[in-house]
């Protein structure tokens, strides 16, 4: 039972992460393999502040910080040509991992941070999977509502129009830059939210929780579910998080489990790009 519950909690958290990536990759159309790094920034921030300040304050700081970092990282993509940004994105991810591992006085180095207190809100502490599921579901619903509203806001419409015809949007005198920055700020907020929830749910974080493989996992979730739609960002995580459980049914040596999982993610990315780039419930990338 608690096994199923923690699957559900993690799936809601990864859905928020997938929405964050969706805003960048699907909506603005910039490639990102550094979303795990941003989520990591949120997770470490909450983990470090959770015992010091009330949970909502820690969360707020994480969310604002992640929004700032995400905008900062997305900015070059608005200025330099597309492929430069691939390098920037890879670089950010690898540097973030290096920082998580090596700034050990702050991050606990390779052993990470343990005993992160469970979130408490108005005297109510979410220290069981049941109660946490309530919190993470509310967070996901809020994120979905935010995504839905953003897509219908003027910013969402501009960003959508840019996909159709960028020059026409520019010619119409719309502020393309501001729309893109706003969307990436919201993407950062989601990443911070996902990171904070992740840290307080598992009570433990370490650098591998936020490395390149996790970025690829989130991207795979998005691609399998389908980019550019709300449904896609939720279908993907729920499906892909079930995969490790399925693999448990096959006898795989423990050292091979990780590579096998990642191998399958890679194969899924290739297969979907070749045969169904819009994913299960998305739109054309």
């Amino acid at each position: 039972m608690s096994f199923l519950l923690s699957y559900l909690v993690l799936a809601t958290i990864y859905s928020i992460a997938a929405l964050s990536t969706n805003l960048l990759v699907g909506i603005i159309g910039i490639f990102s393999v550094s979303q795990a790094a941003i989520i990591g920034v949120g997770a470490y921030t909450v983990a470090l502040l959770a015992g010091v300040v009330p949970f909502p304050v820690a969360m707020l700081v994480a969310v604002v910080l992640c929004a700032l970092v995400n905008v900062l990282l997305a900015l070059p993509s608005l200025r330099v040509a597309g492929d430069y940004f691939v390098v920037t994105s890879f670089g950010c991810q690898l540097v973030a991992t290096a920082v998580f591992i090596n700034w050990d006085t702050l991050t606990g180095g390779a052993s990470g941070i343990v005993a992160i207190p469970a979130p408490s809100l108005f005297g109510f502490t979410a220290d069981t999977p049941q109660t946490f599921l309530v919190i993470s579901t509310i967070a996901l619903l809020a994120a979905c509502a935010g995504f839905w509203l953003l897509m219908r806001s003027p910013f969402g419409k501009i960003v959508h129009a840019i996909r159709e015809d960028e020059t026409a949007v520019l010619a119409a005198g719309k502020n393309v830059l501001r729309a893109k920055v706003s969307v990436s700020a919201v993407s950062g907020v989601y990443a911070g939210l996902a990171g904070g929830l992740y840290a307080t749910f598992l009570n433990f974080i370490d650098p591998p929780s936020f490395d390149l493989h996790v970025s690829i996992l989130i991207l795979t979730m998005l691609v399998v579910g389908g980019a550019r739609t709300l449904a896609g960002s939720i279908i993907g995580p729920f499906l892909l998080l079930a995969l490790p459980q399925l693999l448990n049914l096959v006898a795989v040596p423990p050292t091979m489990a990780g590579p096998l999982r990642q191998f399958i993610y890679g194969a899924l990315l290739i297969a979907f790009m070749l045969f169904r780039p819009q994913g299960i419930a998305g739109r054309r990338l």
Partner: peptide, 19 residues
Amino acid sequence: ATPLVMLIASLGALAVLQN
């Protein structure tokens, strides 16, 4: 395919090769 799709597929190939 758009460059973004090519890139994601390439990333998939990277994961397949490494793992």
